[in-house]
Design a protein around this nucleic acid. Structure first.
Lengths: 229, 229
DNA sequence: TTCATAAATGTATTTATTACATTTATTTTC
DNA sequence: GAAAATAAATGTAATAAATACATTTATGAA
């Protein structure tokens, strides 16, 4: 840190948010249509600039809130993107964050005013600047994170079926999972609370709903348990 | 990105390098004694400021080179640190990088002029600012990375013994490993080339030297193989 | 009552991980 | 030159985890 004397080179610092959602079938990304130049009309991640009196984490929360109305959302820093010409207007370093949101429970907050739209991660439009690199890195981080921490539940409603949970993991990892083995694995962690209710949307028989037991997870974590899927 | 109009808030962007080494027994960190205020005389990571015409990656390489003389070193971005008061002099966002260097083969390049010193990661001095947070995150990233990519070899000389490799992994993960199981695991990946030479420094019998076969690793990776230890 | 549909469930096989002790090659010492 | 000392090299059995795979069950609709 600061080996040489005071240095006047200051740079614009931006934040970009990769917002993941899950619609029961596919992993989705929330994108916004830019309404100003350059690249006006092109799809973009949600972004904004860092202010002098806020931390990066605070700024990311603010940017997400100001562009979507969402708050109390799982968010984590991905990394910094600092190619010299990544923003054609001016040298900008951008700190990318990813957020996991539960589409069904937050969709009402998500006003349409901003021209935001959900896209299937498998079928994204062209994105401005280096946003596609950010998205790639975010997917790969999400894959890792979801396999070692129970962050997947952030993408599901509070109550969900085993099949929804399985579909979520299939979407995150981009591959099919055997349902008997999946259920066995989930049950062996003993972290879900089976509800006395069924979801009858997808079958006549109906399938039981479960909740993630966060308290139990925290207790187990303290005792050396690690989530793994 | 840039949702609001042009924004004049510019911020100092710094880089800090967490430099790991391995001395055959312990994981080490290269630290420097600050020779200017604030915190003059305190131990610090190697750092510098981002210049207008260089990318973050380029800047990290430059900073490392200018403070240690080292180049062609494994380096990767960790993440950005942006607490409002992390630097008491001026608002600064710092992008942390970690580097893996092979102490024995690079020690001659590492001139003493800078007051740099290797410290055992288990026994670090007090560090300035949020540098200890950076170090913690770097250790945890290194643990992950070394378990899924063959980056550990960056910390060893070109030729090394099985026992040195094992000690390295023990140091990275901070726990003992059974030597028979370790050798079995390593051999099962079939990535080392056994040399017709022995290292007799540590025993009368001597132990065979090995090289990591990078070409073979690349070939295998392309065919879906993933390093795992 | 039958049909259609997705839900729920179990076992055997293979693979990976763990635990654990003896023999071997060489140098040093007597 | 024999004995002692030292770390290297090596294998097997037990346990745990991952995988492959098919049938029965509950329910609503026809």
């Amino acid at each position: 840190m600061k080996i040489t004397e005071y240095n006047e080179t200051k740079i614009q610092v931006a934040l970009d948010c990769i917002i993941f959602g899950f619609d029961q079938e596919q992993l989705k990304l929330l994108l916004i249509k830019r309404d100003f130049e350059p690249e006006k009309g092109k799809w973009s991640l949600m972004g904004g600039f860092l202010k002098a009196k806020e931390s990066l984490d605070e700024a990311a929360v603010r940017v997400l809130h100001s562009l979507t109305g969402l708050s109390h959302v799982y968010m984590e820093q991905l990394s910094a993107f600092g190619g010299v010409n990544r923003d054609p207007v001016e040298r900008t370093v951008s700190i990318a964050y990813y957020a996991l949101i539960n589409i069904q429970e937050h969709n009402h907050e998500l006003s349409n005013d901003f021209g935001a739209k959900w896209f299937d991660v498998e079928d994204l439009p062209h994105l401005i600047f280096d946003h596609m690199d950010m998205v790639q890195e975010a997917i790969s981080r999400l894959r890792y994170k979801a396999s070692v921490k129970p962050v997947g539940f952030e993408l599901l409603p509070e109550k969900f079926t085993m099949r929804q949970l399985q579909k979520l993991y299939e979407a995150i990892h981009g591959r099919k999972i055997d349902k008997r083995n999946f259920v066995k694995k989930i049950n062996s962690m003993d972290l879900l609370i089976k509800q006395n209710e069924k979801d009858k949307n997808s079958s006549k028989k109906g399938s039981f709903l479960y909740k993630f037991d966060k308290t139990k997870y925290n207790r187990k974590s303290e005792n050396g348990f690690t989530f793994g899927i």
